[in-house]
């Protein structure tokens, strides 16, 4: 594997901006095959300080050895042929009222997002829960604006939101970007309905889709099992996330 001069690594600066939190943050995406050391991390932190960054994320495929700080999670990519996933997901008959998401439904998504699984942000003690939820909804909105046909909400008979699912696309793959299911409906059947709706919409939108992909934190065993049963396999592309605060 290659070692690299960390000056070659770009700091992608963005603003984390919610009602609760607002600060400059940056992400470093370490290329595949490149190993960085704790010294290189120190150099990245120095550069971040100069740019008045408050929060630095380093995404590295290799774990950074001998670093005092542990990774905030390992996110792995899973993929499978589109047809295989569609066949497996269609095994269960549709039972829920699932409808395309529209701009009037944000309150329902906000309500549901409170039930989402923990992620690397909620595990970081620097973030409060409200900020994490708010950030998540903001990301949903960004993705929905890019792919407005690929987001779905499920409702109970009492018209309560019980599930939300959003996909994103590239040329050949539909990515299961995120799914939130109310805890009492986490038996799998609602998830099938949501995934079926997303796959159908993705195919209808562009039938050249060949793959289904998703990214799952390694400690989210329930999601790993669920997507594995749908045929998705880990393809080896994974990120260790490190957070640094200044």
């Amino acid at each position: 594997m290659l070692k690299t001069d960390c000056n070659q690594l770009a700091l992608e600066v963005v603003k984390f901006d919610t009602e609760h939190f607002g600060f400059r943050c940056a992400t470093v995406n370490v290329p595949a095959g490149v190993v960085i050391t704790p010294d290189a991390v120190d150099e990245l932190k120095s550069r971040a300080r100069v740019e008045n960054i408050k929060f630095l994320t380093v995404m590295s495929r290799s774990a950074i050895l001998n670093l005092e700080q542990h990774s905030h999670g390992v996110l792995s990519e899973y993929i499978a042929p589109f047809e295989e996933v569609r066949n497996r997901a269609s095994v269960f008959p549709r039972r829920f009222h699932v409808e395309p998401f529209n701009d009037n439904n944000w309150k329902d998504v906000v309500q549901l997002t409170k039930f989402r699984s923990s992620n690397r942000f909620s595990k970081d003690s620097h973030f409060d829960e409200a900020a994490v939820f708010e950030h998540k909804v903001k990301l949903f909105r960004l993705q929905w604006q890019r792919f407005p046909k690929l987001a779905y909400l499920a409702y109970s008979k009492q018209s309560e939101p019980v599930g939300f699912h959003i996909c994103v696309r590239d040329k050949y793959a539909v990515n299961q970007y995120d799914m939130v299911v109310r805890p009492d409906y986490r038996t799998g059947t609602l998830a099938f309905d949501l995934i079926n709706a997303g796959l159908k919409a993705a195919y209808h939108d562009d039938n050249s889709v060949k793959l289904v992909s998703t990214r799952i934190y390694d400690d989210n065993g329930q999601a790993v099992r669920f997507f594995s049963k749908l045929g998705l396999k880990r393809n080896g592309s994974e990120f260790n996330y490190y957070h640094f605060w200044f």
């Binding site: 009222h97 499920a154 008979k157 009492d184 409906y185 799998g188 059947t189 609602l190 099992r225």
Partner: peptide, 28 residues
Amino acid sequence: DSFGFAELVVFLEKRFNVHFEGEELTAD
């Protein structure tokens, strides 16, 4: 698990000639 539950529901519906609405498919 999720898949097992779906298979179980299909079995119960066929075997006992019943139909579960979405709201009934809760863990409770």
